[in-house]
Computed example of a mutant assay.
Amino acid sequence: MVAGVAGQPIAHSLSPVIHAAWIAAAGLDAVYRAFGPADHAAFAELVSEGRRGVLRGLNVTAPFKEQALALADEVSLTARACGSANLLVFEAGRVRADSTDGAGLMAALAEQAPALDVTGQALVVLGAGGAARAAAAALKAAGAEVGILNRTVQRAQALADELGVAVIGSGALCEAALVINALSVPPEIDLEALRPDAVLMDMTYRPLLTRFLADGRARGLTTVDGLAMLIGQARPSFQALFGLAPPVVDVRTVALAALGAVA
């Protein structure tokens, strides 16, 4: 079985390291590799190879998540709510699309901020792109009161209208039990305005300890890193791709070694 992750750029991805550890532990005759289509036409050709049985499936990252959804024959309710797909499974010439990003986010919160119950809580997502959409959709489904904070209010409003969440200003940060950075750059917010029990999460894992998380830790806040989310979304992906649950392996330690970081 051949599966992998597709994106551009893709050389930085730790997904092959994580899945390879599970494949080895399970003793599977399989390979999981990185694919770097040069453009959307090349990604479409990669999906066509999947339809022809060359590939078992793909995880998908930027900039192809929306295209992945559009190319699928079957789309899960979760992927439809997110407006994108990070998982394609090929079977009998057909393409099934799903999104495990939300599951990964919730798994990361459960692991690194176990005291946080998002139900009924005011939460803030920074950004209005694809990562923000997946986060907002998952948190809304979990019963949270989600607010979108983005420099471009029009973009934030479009996302909020689609998901049924709110657009907020920076003044609402003082009420947030959780603030998630879904931007590709460090956010410019006043951490001193946050509740003393607020949780900070960053969806990136390069670097593992972002400036946002480091500043939060310095203030004594609980932090959740992007690697926990990456591993959390990889678990259901592995199950869908290879038909079995991931073996019990300390993949975080394996990923940290590849990342050159410490736990």
Rank of each mutant, 00 (worst) to 15 (best):
V179R: 09
A132C: 01
V124H: 04
P186G: 04
P114Q: 09
P114H: 15
L105N: 07
A115C: 06
A134I: 12
N150V: 14
L208V: 14
D101V: 04
G129L: 12
A141C: 09
E145V: 10
A122Q: 11
L191S: 03
A132H: 10
D117S: 15
E175V: 02
V125I: 15
L191K: 00
R151Q: 14
G171K: 03
A137P: 07
G169S: 08
A166G: 01
N181P: 07
E188A: 14
A156C: 06
G147V: 11
P196Y: 01
G120P: 06
G104D: 11
G143N: 09
Q157W: 02
A132E: 03
C174W: 01
G169E: 11
E145P: 00
G169F: 09
Q157V: 13
S99P: 03
R195S: 10
A172N: 01
P114D: 14
L178S: 10
A198M: 09
L191D: 01
A138H: 11
A108H: 02
T204L: 13
M203K: 13
I189M: 03
T210G: 10
D190M: 02
R155V: 05
D161C: 13
A156S: 08
N181V: 10
P114L: 12
A122L: 09
T204V: 15
A107V: 05
R155W: 05
I148N: 02
D202Y: 10
M106C: 04
A134S: 14
P187I: 01
E111A: 14
A115Y: 01
A177M: 03
L149T: 04
M106R: 05
V199Y: 06
L200P: 06
A158C: 00
S184E: 00
Q157C: 04
A158R: 08
Q121S: 14
D197E: 13
L109Y: 12
L139T: 03
R94I: 02
L116F: 05
